[in-house]
Design a protein around this nucleic acid. Structure first.
Lengths: 144, 144
DNA sequence: CTGTATCCCAAATGATACTG
DNA sequence: CAGTATCATTTGGGATACAG
């Protein structure tokens, strides 16, 4: 779903024989590269992030989400929700009424993920001007 | 580059006429949706994340990065680095020697981004088993 | 209403070859 | 070494249409 939902290409780097810089610890960054990548993929997925955001303030129905997330297709919403459900981030509750009603809600795990995602979002907001400026500079420097 | 490097489809949700739940504030989550999305896209990009990780402990050369990030193609490394450079997250320094040498290094901005990304990575590591378990459960529940 | 199944096009990426 | 150019392939994702 995301760009990188598949766990290949996530090997560890060859150990830099003699590290030219201290490199204090065995570098926790590299640990568990494989597994982590597939989780980052979920976060990297635009729709997943939006859905998680939208579920912040309580459960929502399918079409409710569809309306809130402007531009998502039915197909992608279904796929995204399935992915989130599969990862245990969202629950899916069916009310066997007519017409049917399905509620989606964040799990505890999902709410936990929300925190770091939000932190990221806040960083993005805090620095968006700086980045926009950098982009402009770069662009006009490379095609005048 | 990432799945969602383009700023379309990032509109705000239509105001839920009469909200069925309190919906306390104008919801700061939705603010600056467009701009933020393109930044999240960068983070969502697998290769970008890896490159940022790899640059944690100092500048690296092109092929050095290529070797460290197992599986990335020359093409994708180039594109990824260009993107990071464009966003002002990485600097590119050319040493006009023969053969040429190019160093890539995180900017202050880039190092700043590293923090939230790392937080996310740590969350991922902390919960990877829980997620793996959820996936297994989901899978065997849906195709026995 | 909440999906699933198809078809189909555009974008992303890998492989390969070539260059300063 | 550090790219650029081109081609081939895969994949993502929108637009239907249909079903329970």
């Amino acid at each position: 779903m995301g760009t990188l939902l598949k766990p290949e290409n996530t090997d560890l780097p060859a150990p830099t024989r003699a590290n030219q810089r201290p490199a204090p610890m065995p570098d926790p960054n590299h640990a568990d590269c494989r597994g982590v990548a597939s989780i980052l993929a979920r976060v990297g997925d635009k729709w997943s992030v939006f859905v998680i955001m939208m579920l912040s303030d309580g459960p929502k129905r399918f079409n409710e989400l569809k309306r809130m997330i402007n531009g998502i297709s039915q197909r992608m919403l279904t796929l995204t929700l399935r992915g989130l459900e599969r990862d245990g981030l969202v629950t899916r509750t069916i009310f066997p009424t007519i017409p049917p009603r399905v509620d989606y809600e964040l799990t505890d795990l999902g709410r936990g993920l929300q925190q770091p995602v939000k932190a990221l979002g806040e960083w993005a907001i805090a620095h968006q001007e700086q980045i926009a400026a950098a982009r402009t500079r770069f662009d006009e420097r490379n095609e005048p």
